[in-house]
Simulated assay, not measured.
Amino acid sequence: MFAQFLTPAYLPFAIAFVVMLGIGLIEGVGLGLGHFDLDADVAADGHAGVLDWLGLGGELPILIWLTSLLGCFTVAGIALQQGASALWGAPLAWPLASGGALLAGGLLNTVVANGLARIMPGFETSVISTEDLLRRRGTVLEGVARRGSPARAKIVDQFGQAHFVMVEPHNDTAVIPAGETVLLVRRHGTLFFALPDRDTLLQSI
């Protein structure tokens, strides 16, 4: 069976399975990449119903949802190829099998994702709005933050969940190097503006 899994007819599903394991490992070791604020502005755009249907409306972490989708795609693809082999003596060509598995796996994943959202209430209580990150401190991880040139920073919320955001200095002439602790003071879209802790205005905060 393992050798069959590596043949061209099954290769898309083998790749999906490996990616699923990799994402599961990332989520499992707690790198904090699983939570994205997908629900912050979708209501105004009228897409909330679509997210609900996909299983994302319940604040299910995106990496868990993606892992579920890859798993459903893999299972659907293997079942499709096994069925084709039983009926016609050979599996389908991989593009045809991939299309069918994507459709079947996507439908199956709506059920699985919504089920996971119901049995994982801990995520519903720990997911916060992007606005809640304001007035919290974080650390610039890499790059140098300048006006017009944001850097990546890590913010830990009140639940201990890490969020990774892009930050620029609040002051036009400020420069914030990697390793600097900052205070998020305002937001424009997905971009945050921060004051470095070395700023004398923050020493009493």
Rank of each mutant, 00 (worst) to 15 (best):
D39Q: 15
Q82S: 10
V167I: 15
A145V: 02
L54R: 06
W65K: 05
F164A: 00
G34L: 03
L60M: 03
T181L: 11
L201M: 12
E124W: 07
Q161D: 13
P177W: 10
L103K: 00
G83V: 03
A174C: 05
A153T: 02
I64G: 04
T130D: 11
N114R: 11
A90W: 02
G32D: 05
A113V: 13
I155C: 03
F123N: 11
L184F: 13
D41R: 12
Q158F: 12
V50T: 10
P177C: 14
A162M: 07
R186T: 13
E168Y: 02
A101R: 00
G46A: 13
F159M: 08
G49F: 01
A9R: 11
L108D: 04
S204I: 09
C72P: 01
R136P: 01
D39T: 15
I23N: 05
I119N: 07
G46C: 05
R198F: 15
L60F: 03
G58A: 14
V112L: 06
L56N: 10
V156T: 04
D52K: 09
E59R: 15
A43D: 14
I15E: 12
H170N: 09
G58I: 02
G189V: 12
A16R: 10
V167N: 11
G160C: 01
I78A: 10
L11G: 07
S204N: 14
I155M: 07
A14G: 02
L133F: 11
P8K: 00
F2H: 08
G122T: 03
S126E: 08
I78G: 04
R135Y: 15
G30A: 07
A151I: 02
V156E: 08
L11S: 15
V167R: 04
L38N: 09
D172S: 15
H170T: 12
G106V: 03
